[in-house]
């Protein structure tokens, strides 16, 4: 009897707590594949196309700064699948008007197609598919951070769920091709925006962090407008700020040689 009372008491006492917590606790926890799929769409596939002005500030451990500024145009071939990118550089002056164009393929067997346009020579150069884990324009961001790492490259495990976040551990299927052992992504439960990515090296030591510092709702799409990557090994960090973000701008197929020679108006204004 005492036992029953105790149970009732505890249950009764705790019930209001559960009730207060209801929005979170009764919300179903989706399976891990659903979470990573949703987060991938939010991070890289908002709308059917989009544009943004990007300012990167690279600060090395001595505090010396370098800046990059470019307009990025994106069009999805397929939601969650292939995409096309057009990156039109504005700063620094020596790379002004250079264009970097990518036809991204999510099929791990197919390399991305990449072009570089050098305006002074009026030259369209085809670039060999490179290691995607090399620096993008000398910053602490890697090519893969910009265009997205294919979900098929890793196995995903939900290792923690808090009130606000899902934490997913991602382990590469081919560990020899990357410099990390695994990385954890903390995903906002409400918006599915990846808020933090933590990369652990081969000795399982944290060495690289990407954080979403500012998220805004633009045309109903939750958008990271400021993110910072810190390399704990080199002491260098890069801040990336997005402005003039627009979605569903009805981009034509400007991802061709024609528009390398003459950037579309969307890239200039």
């Amino acid at each position: 009897m005492r036992l029953i009372l105790t149970v009732v008491f505890i249950l009764g006492f705790s019930l209001p707590l559960f009730a207060a917590d209801e929005p979170n606790s009764t919300r179903e926890i989706p399976d891990v594949q659903t979470i990573v799929n949703k987060a991938n769409i939010v991070a890289y596939y908002q709308g059917k196309d989009g544009k943004a002005k990007v300012k990167m500030t690279i600060t090395n451990k001595k505090g010396q700064k370098r800046e990059r500024q470019f307009i990025i145009l994106r069009k999805d071939v397929e939601d969650g699948g292939d995409q096309k990118y057009f990156v039109y550089f504005q700063k620094p002056a020596d790379v002004r008007k250079m264009v970097f164009m990518v036809h991204k393929h999510t099929d791990p067997k197919k390399d991305d197609d990449r072009w570089l346009y050098l305006p002074a020579l009026s030259l369209v150069r085809r670039i060999a598919a490179g290691d995607k884990r090399t620096s993008f324009v000398g910053s602490d961001f890697l090519y893969e951070d910009i265009s997205g790492r294919s979900l098929a490259e890793d196995t995903h495990e939900l290792i923690k769920t808090t009130d606000k976040l899902f934490v997913i551990k991602n382990v590469p299927k081919q560990p020899d091709t990357v410099e990390f052992n695994y990385f954890n992504v903390s995903i906002d439960r409400k918006t599915y925006v990846p808020m933090k990515m933590e990369f652990y090296d081969k000795k399982n030591k944290l060495y690289r962090i990407i954080e979403s510092k500012k998220v805004e709702k633009i045309q109903d799409f939750h958008t990271v407008v400021k993110s910072v990557v810190s390399n704990l090994k080199t002491g260098s960090k890069t801040e990336m700020e997005f402005s003039n973000v627009k979605y569903n701008i009805n981009l034509k197929d400007i991802f061709t040689e024609r528009y390398l020679h003459r950037p579309p108006r969307e890239a200039i204004r």
Binding site: D111, D113, R126, I127, A128, A129
Partner: peptide, 11 residues
Amino acid sequence: VRGAIGKGIGN
């Protein structure tokens, strides 16, 4: 003609 061959670009 120019295009991807293996890991590189051939022409």
